[in-house]
C-alpha cells in the first residue's frame, strides 16, 4: 500500500521535487509504444490539456466512467432521445418514474415531496419506481408494448404502471446508466418517445461521477468525439471497443498509463502491472507505488474549475471552497508535455 502524501511528487514511492517528477513522467510516457491517458477525472481545462498531451504522444484517452456515459450516448445515437435536466424536472414534472436506484444527491434536488414549482395547479407529484435488474430490459419492453396499447401478456404491475404513465402531463423518467444495460436504456428512450406522441415525456439520465459528462463535453469540442479516442498522425479516432483503457491494460497492449484523477476518485481499477504515472490528490492510496506520482489540486475545492453541474446539467464554473496553491491538472499536463523530448 502506498499513500500519496502532501509532497509535490513521488518516484517509486519516494518523495521528489516536482521538476524531477515532471521529467520522470515525460520520460516514461515518451518511451512508451502505446501510452494511455486514463481516469480523466478532471475539470474542463484538465481534459483539454489531456487531449493536447495525447495528441502529442499518439496516446489513447479514456475516462474511468466512460462505460456509463457511452451507454447513454449509444442510446441517443441509435434511436434519438428526448431529455431534460434535473432543474427542469423540479420545475415541471408532475410524474417521475425512477428506474433503479440512482444516487440520492441529485434525486434530492428534484424536491419530489413538493409539487412541481411551475405547475399552475400545484398538484402533488406522482413518484413511481421500477427496480433495476437482469430482466429490466424485458420488462421495459413489455411496458412499451402496453403503452402502445398492444395486446401482450404482461404482469399486473406493468399494466398498472402503463396506465399511470399515460396520465402524466409532463413525465420524467430518471435513470443512471451505470446501473442499466444499454438495451434497457434504449427501451427507456423508446418508451419516452412512444409516450411523447400524446403527452410530454423526457428522460433524465443522471451523470456518472468523476465529471465524466463534463469531460465528454470537453473531448467533444476538442476532438469531435467522446471517450476512447486514439490519436494517429495527430488525427483523433474514436473506437469504443478497442480504445477501452481497462481492456488495453489487461491485454498488455498498453505499456504505460497516465492516470489522471484530480477529483479524488481512487486509483486505477486494474491489478495488472503496467508502468504508471499518477496525477492524484494527496491522500490517494495505491496498492503499489506508481513509478511517478504527482500531487494535483482538486477543481472546485482547491482551485476553480469548469465541472458538469449535476442539477443544472451543464458545464459550469465551480469556485474553490478551500483554495490551496496546488498545481492544477492542466498545469501538470502542460508541464509534462513541455518536458517531452522535441519530436
Amino acid at each position: 500500500m502506498f499513500e500519496l502524501v502532501d509532497a509535490e511528487a513521488a518516484l517509486d514511492g519516494r518523495p521528489a521535487p516536482l521538476p524531477q517528477g515532471i521529467a520522470a513522467a515525460a520520460a516514461l510516457l515518451a518511451g512508451a509504444a502505446a501510452p494511455v491517458i486514463a481516469g480523466l477525472r478532471t475539470d474542463a481545462a484538465g481534459a483539454v490539456a489531456a487531449v493536447a498531451l495525447a495528441r502529442r504522444l499518439g496516446a489513447v484517452l479514456d475516462h474511468a466512467e466512460s462505460e456509463a456515459v457511452l451507454r447513454d450516448l449509444d442510446a441517443m445515437r441509435i434511436g434519438g432521445w428526448i431529455v431534460t435536466t434535473p432543474a427542469q424536472a423540479r420545475a415541471f414534472a408532475d410524474l417521475v418514474l425512477i428506474v433503479g436506484d440512482p444516487a440520492p444527491d441529485v434525486l434530492a434536488a428534484l424536491a419530489l415531496e413538493r409539487p412541481p414549482m411551475l405547475d399552475a395547479e400545484q398538484r402533488p407529484r406522482r413518484v413511481l419506481r421500477l427496480a433495476a435488474g437482469e430482466t429490466l430490459a424485458v420488462r421495459l419492453g413489455l411496458l412499451r408494448a402496453l403503452a402502445k396499447r398492444r395486446e401482450v401478456a404482461a404482469p399486473h404491475d406493468l399494466v398498472t404502471l402503463a396506465e399511470a404513465l399515460a396520465g402524466a402531463r409532463y413525465g420524467v423518467v430518471v435513470w443512471s446508466a451505470a446501473q442499466l444495460s444499454s438495451l434497457a436504456i434504449e427501451m427507456l428512450c423508446g418508451l419516452i418517445e412512444d409516450l411523447s406522441a400524446a403527452t410530454r415525456y423526457a428522460g433524465l439520465p443522471l451523470p456518472a461521477p468523476g465529471n465524466a459528462a463534463g469531460v465528454a463535453q470537453a473531448l467533444g469540442w476538442e476532438t469531435g468525439f467522446p471517450f476512447r479516442i486514439a490519436f494517429r498522425d495527430g488525427m483523433p479516432r474514436h473506437d469504443p471497443v478497442h480504445y477501452e483503457a481497462t481492456r488495453m491494460v489487461a491485454s498488455g497492449e498498453a505499456d504505460a498509463v497516465l492516470w489522471l484523477d484530480a477529483l479524488g476518485g481512487g486509483p486505477p481499477p486494474w491489478r495488472k502491472q503496467v508502468r504508471l504515472v499518477a496525477l492524484a490528490p494527496p491522500g490517494t492510496r495505491f496498492a503499489d507505488p506508481p513509478e511517478v506520482a504527482l500531487a494535483v489540486g482538486r477543481p472546485g475545492i482547491d482551485h476553480a474549475g469548469a465541472l458538469f453541474h449535476p442539477v443544472a446539467a451543464a458545464v459550469l464554473a465551480a469556485l474553490p471552497t478551500a483554495p490551496l496553491p496546488r498545481p492544477t491538472a492542466a498545469d501538470l499536463l502542460g508541464r509534462i508535455q513541455a518536458a517531452l523530448p522535441a519530436c
Binding site: G79, G80, W81, I82, V83, T84, T85, A87, Q88, A202
Partner: peptide
Amino acid sequence: RHSAHPRTWSIAEDIGNG
C-alpha cells in the same frame, strides 16, 4: 425529429429554450 437523416436526434429541454 422524425425527418432526421440519419434517423437519430437529441431533443433537450432546459431552463428557457433548450
